[in-house]
Design a binder for these strands. Structure first.
Lengths: 188, 188
DNA sequence: TTGTTTGTACAGTTCAAACTGTACAAACCG
DNA sequence: CGGTTTGTACAGTTTGAACTGTACAAACAA
């Protein structure tokens, strides 16, 4: 009788946990990952202890291959880290559990990568148009048309510069301060 | 001869533009939209003038249905707005061309929606566990187990609160100031 | 050395998202 | 009123992403 109660209880706790994991994973698409990968992260986060690929495969009832690739993705996003425990030969992984860190890292790593590539393309285009503009035989109307595009490219470049400054700010201590101050003010 | 040059020239400008559109669209997955939708946004952005669904369909060589649903998605993200021109019966759409606004809106709208839902799930779980803890017959080990989960839920809640403060900050003028100041400092 | 364990590359399959064409409702025109 | 234009709902198709199982390479064991 007591035993059944025990089982019920841990099952309840388990279900509650699963609901939260599901909720978190459903919304990790904001980080560009699929729900399955989100579920894996959630599992690792709540498990606390590091897990092996076989643990994960067992827990999520999925293939080992999936676990391998998923955990790789999570590592690239700095959401999961390798762990070591003496006497265990298998690879161990544990969740990075500092969500503030995950959030700011995401921008630094993913968004910066993207803006860098975009800037490159825009700079290239801008310099090509500049060269076109050198042609003295260009009609006034052509010149205007090209200038319109060039203005847009310049606007984009300025935006990306601003964005990178913003990401620097995100990584700085300043961010925590500013937001913290806001929270404290509101408590008053 | 002159005519051919003219054609070459505008073709070159067009190609340069397409390269930038492609680059921008490829990376709009950070906003959770597919490359096609990104390409549509880029087309609208560089076209300057508002476009009808048929214009878009023509420009991108895609079905009108796709244009209709894509433009809808872009409107929900505040990246495209309806436009009116007298004498034109068809619906007109133009790109929201303030990228700073798009960026901050994205967080306010998308991320906030998600965090709100997550918070709800976590709060629910937290209150259910609290009720479980009321049981006086609970063993010490069970109690510890549940407490571990509750601590994690509390951590998540704190994080989301912080995140919402951060989004408030994003929407405030303060953001622009802080980053602007950084940029000015660096120029010195 | 051979035998075992562990992680991953790769080919094939499954499934969901993107896209199309048709068909229709709503708005407008005469 | 019927005829036309325009946007979208819906069903069907295509395409790509997610996932699996097998097969193998690398690391270790004896």
């Amino acid at each position: 009788m007591k035993l059944v109660n025990e089982m019920d209880r841990s099952e309840i706790v388990e279900n509650i946990r699963d609901r939260v994991i599901e909720s978190v994973s459903q919304n990790m698409y904001l980080y560009g990952v699929s729900p399955s990968i989100g579920r894996l992260y959630g599992t690792l986060f709540f498990n606390g202890e590091p897990m092996t690929l076989d643990d994960m495969k067992e827990e999520l009832k999925m293939s080992k291959t999936s676990m391998s690739t998923s955990v790789r993705t999570l590592m690239e996003l700095n959401m999961v880290e390798r762990a070591w425990r003496k006497g265990i030969r298998k690879d161990l992984y544990e969740a990075q559990d500092d969500w503030y860190q995950i959030f700011t890292d995401f921008f630094s790593n993913q968004w910066r990568k993207v803006t860098a590539m975009n800037m490159k393309a825009v700079r290239q285009s801008l310099s090509e148009l500049t060269r076109l503009m050198d042609d003295p035989e260009l009609s006034e109307s052509d010149r205007e048309l090209i200038q319109t595009d060039m203005d847009k490219y310049q606007y984009i470049l300025n935006y990306y510069k601003w964005l990178n400054e913003f990401f620097d700010f995100l990584n700085s201590d300043e961010l925590y301060q500013v937001v913290k101050k806001k929270m404290d003010n509101e408590k008053k």
